[in-house]
Design a protein around this nucleic acid. Structure first.
Lengths: 131, 131
DNA sequence: CTTGACCCTCCAGCAACTGGAAGCCCCATA
DNA sequence: TATGGGGCTTCCAGTTGCTGGAGGGTCAAG
């Protein structure tokens, strides 16, 4: 399978697939003309990576998950630990963003948004310790 | 004021302050010995930047907000537009993360997390179209 | 034989810093 | 007066995860 076909099947751009090869996540064979030749197993790995990335796992997480995926004797606890850690990070990110959203939506609500220069948003950014 | 003092007052690391000078957000004077000499106004700008960054505004947003902050004739509508746009981005990010969290927490919940190899997390990453 | 769609490699750049090396400068203490 | 420690300077490189583009080979159709 050429990179284009793999790209279509996995939804990953060719550039990304090449990048994943660069950093050692996949190791496609090569045809005589130098083209990458992906086996089914490589394509499955890439699909796996695409899904893990969609869930926000870092590349290093993906590398570990992939190793566990390939290891038929792995303990599910190992996978779960990675996922739980990642889940905690996501939750932290969400609450950080929610804080931002709350502050910001208050400011936006209180701003007249007309052609006068008076603006609580700038006033807050300029002076508040409340951020 | 030296960079260290400004750093203490604003909470921004010296490295960050130098970086902000590099990209033209602040323009401190220089002492005879080459040290940066910040005036009050520069320090206020940096504090402003720190708060805007805390609210997740991009550097380019900050540049625009700063310009509006300095412009005593600005229309508050201009500020509000930037803030609203940013708010929308934050909300999009939040819902993306919430989707991740929901999927991931289901997976984590369903995973025994013991020393057996059977693991719904990897199973899903390996096969599901549901992500 | 040419055209257009592939594919290749390599280099640069994005955001927003952060770390580290190499080297002044200033002040207090022995 | 030497010296030690901190603070300041510049510049370069690295972070994450790609993405864009240049410059060039390959392949299949007409």
């Amino acid at each position: 399978m050429n990179i284009g076909e793999v790209s279509q099947h996995t939804g990953l751009p060719p550039k990304t697939i090449r990048y994943y090869e660069d950093i050692g996540l996949v190791k496609p064979l090569r045809d005589a003309n130098g083209y990458r030749a992906f086996r089914e197993s490589e394509m499955h790995k890439l699909a796996f990576l695409g899904r893990a990335r969609t869930l926000g796992f870092s590349i290093e997480d993906c590398r570990n998950l992939l190793a566990l995926w390939e290891d038929k004797n792995r303990a599910s606890a190992d996978v779960r630990a990675i996922a739980k850690e990642h889940l905690a990070q996501i939750e932290a990110k969400i609450s950080g963003l929610q804080e931002m959203r709350d502050t910001l939506s208050t400011l936006v609500r209180d701003c007249a948004g007309d052609d006068r220069p008076d603006c609580p948003i700038l006033k807050t950014l300029g002076t508040a310790a409340a951020i």
